[in-house]
């Protein structure tokens, strides 16, 4: 029994939570349980899911990235404000990815080379970008998103929405990248023990730097998908996204330095969020309640892993 419990506690909480939420929906709102409705729920969390791919990577090398909020806001504003003029879509996408990578490189430099606390560094980056964007917009909401982006966002392949496919393909690529390439081993080694990795010849700093650049890249992709999902630009994109990304990652069994949940654990962590917001909305939980749920999820998931890794 004890060994069964021990092996059960290795399974990421995301799978249990997902099953529980699915059962709750099945019992209380059976009319929602069809492929079309579910597709729309899951499409809503596609930006979060893409952001989680980067968050997972940096958390596996014992870092964290809260700058996603800033990247999202900046790209959202740039596209909606018309500052880019009549730039073709491909150029907008390239520019967004470049912004994401640049912010990631900056984070990575601060965290890996200057050894700045990752929370402080990435939070400060978000504060700086947010202040700057709000200054540019002088508090007024920006204009409309290009219609073309929204049209692409609404496309479907069979019953599955395009953003969900993009998210799944990126997740698969990430899984292959981490399991088949040397970099994946580096990530695992640095997460397990940075000092031992350093003396074994693993380029610790470079591994962390690259993880942050990739996280910035995924934040750029998430920003494009998020911008496509709304008709109008917004200045009210807050810290919720990166915090939800942290929560989903921990739910999915990836905590600082440990990647038990692999790539698919966090994937299901995000799916939990898709269902969680539906369940909470259908039960009439107000916005502050969601705030509390957000905090409780991170705390409980972290406690779950904290107890598992406690020194005996």
């Amino acid at each position: 029994m004890a060994s069964f419990l021990k092996s059960a506690s290795r399974i990421p909480p995301a799978y249990f939570v997902f099953a529980a939420l699915l059962a709750t929906l099945w019992l209380t709102k059976p009319q929602l349980m069809n492929l079309n409705v579910m597709g729309i729920f899951i499409r809503q969390v596609a930006p979060l899911g893409i952001l989680v791919l980067g968050q997972m990577l940096v958390m596996r090398v014992r870092s964290i990235d809260l700058s996603g909020a800033g990247v999202l806001l900046l790209i959202n504003y740039l596209i909606a404000s018309g500052l880019l003029g009549d730039m073709p879509l491909t150029l907008i996408i390239i520019l967004s990815l470049a912004i994401g990578c640049a912010v990631g490189l900056f984070n990575g430099y601060l965290v890996a080379m200057r050894r700045v606390s990752a929370v402080i560094a990435t939070l400060a980056v978000t504060v700086i970008i947010t202040g700057f964007v709000q200054f540019l917009a002088s508090g007024k909401p920006p204009g409309n998103m290009p219609e073309l982006m929204n049209d692409i966002y609404k496309m479907k392949l069979g019953p599955i929405p395009l953003p969900v496919i993009v998210w799944t393909v990126l997740t698969m690529t990430m899984a292959v990248f981490l399991s088949r390439f040397v970099y994946g081993r580096f990530v695992m080694a640095v997460g397990e023990n940075p000092t031992a990795s350093h003396f074994s010849g693993v380029p610790v700093e470079r591994t962390v730097l690259v993880a942050h650049v990739l996280a910035g890249f995924f934040a750029g992709v998430a920003a494009i998908v998020q911008s496509a999902s709304v008709a109008v630009g917004s200045l009210r994109l807050g810290l919720e996204m990166p915090i939800d990304a942290v929560a989903a990652t921990i739910l999915g069994g990836v905590v600082f330095g440990r990647g038990d949940g692999g790539v698919w654990g966090p994937f299901f962590g995000v799916m939990c969020f898709a269902l969680l917001f539906v369940v909470m909305t259908s039960f009439g939980v107000p916005e502050p309640g969601k705030q509390i749920a957000r905090g409780l999820i991170i705390l409980l998931a972290a406690v779950f892993y904290g107890l598992n890794t406690r020194k005996s």
């Binding site: 502050p288 309640g289 705030q291 509390i292 957000r294 905090g295 409780l296 999820i297 705390l299 972290a302």
Partner: peptide, 8 residues
């Protein structure tokens, strides 16, 4: 996480 719980 406590920041979010208390804010809520």
């Amino acid at each position: 996480s406590m920041q979010f719980i208390v804010l809520g």
